[in-house]
């Protein structure tokens, strides 16, 4: 059994990859972080071709559910869930930071201590989670300002040890990571204001000013 898995992640850039029996067969990303909906499916087709396989051969789909910018995140989760539904195969959501943590351990970016994976949450905040030296998540994910992060070595997009997610690795290790569900890890409530009391539409009292000569 070679258990072909398609991996998708849109928590930062658009990434897709294919793994068979835990080995990465193809992996790609599109650096443009704005046009997720445009680029994801063409990239999926490209990595499948590179891996010498097709959708009908897949046995599972794994998708990164963030945290990350909401609109982009939903592109990946919508595509992954509908692909799985149509192909009649299972889909598993994983925390995108967990994949980065495993990549950091494998890449020798971290030592024998606990560490933090941190990515850009905009609005001067980070998405982050804390990991043990083997890459197992101990705490998080959270969103907060950079000074609230634990005093530990840091890896990830906003740190001195930048790290880009590899969707082929995601596909290879998804089954070993905690199941994060298929609801994106938003971590923030929607931006919305309950309307305040109505503003007066009556004209304010007229005030005449006289120019002082």
């Amino acid at each position: 059994m070679n258990s072909l898995v398609l991996g998708i992640d849109t928590s930062a850039t658009v990434c897709a990859g294919v793994a068979g029996a835990g080995v990465v067969l193809a992996s790609g990303s599109v650096p443009d972080s704005r046009a997720h909906a445009e680029q994801l499916m063409p990239l999926v087709q490209r990595v499948l071709a590179e891996a010498g396989t097709g959708l009908s051969e897949l046995e599972a789909i794994a998708v990164g559910v963030g945290p990350g910018p909401f609109t982009g995140l939903r592109v990946g989760v919508a595509a992954a869930t509908v692909l799985a539904e149509t192909l009649g195969i299972p889909v598993r959501g994983v925390c995108s930071l967990d994949v980065l943590a495993v990549q950091a351990v494998e890449g020798g970016l971290v030592g024998a201590a606990e560490f933090v994976v941190a990515t850009d949450a905009r609005r001067k905040e980070y998405y982050w989670a804390r990991y043990d030296p083997s890459g197992r998540r101990l705490d998080g994910p959270h969103v907060s300002s950079p000074q609230d992060l634990p005093e530990l070595p840091r890896v990830g997009a906003v740190t001195d040890a930048p790290l880009a997610l590899d969707a082929g690795r995601l596909a290879a290790i998804a089954n070993d990571l905690p199941d994060a569900g298929l609801e994106p890890l938003y971590l923030r409530r929607p931006d919305a204001d309950v309307p305040a009391t109505r503003k007066s539409t009556l004209l304010p009292p007229r005030v005449t000013t006289r120019r002082v000569r």
């Binding site: 997720h36 909906a37 994801l40 499916m41 999926v44 087709q45 959708l55 909401f70 609109t71 939903r74 592109v75 990946g76 919508a78 595509a79 992954a80 509908v82 692909l83 149509t86 192909l87």
Partner: peptide
């Protein structure tokens, strides 16, 4: 709405490719 449109669009593309 952009954020709303892309959900349906991504789903539709996945369907078109899978089928």
């Amino acid at each position: 709405l952009m954020g709303a449109l892309v959900v349906g669009l991504s789903a539709a593309k996945a369907l078109a490719v899978a089928l």
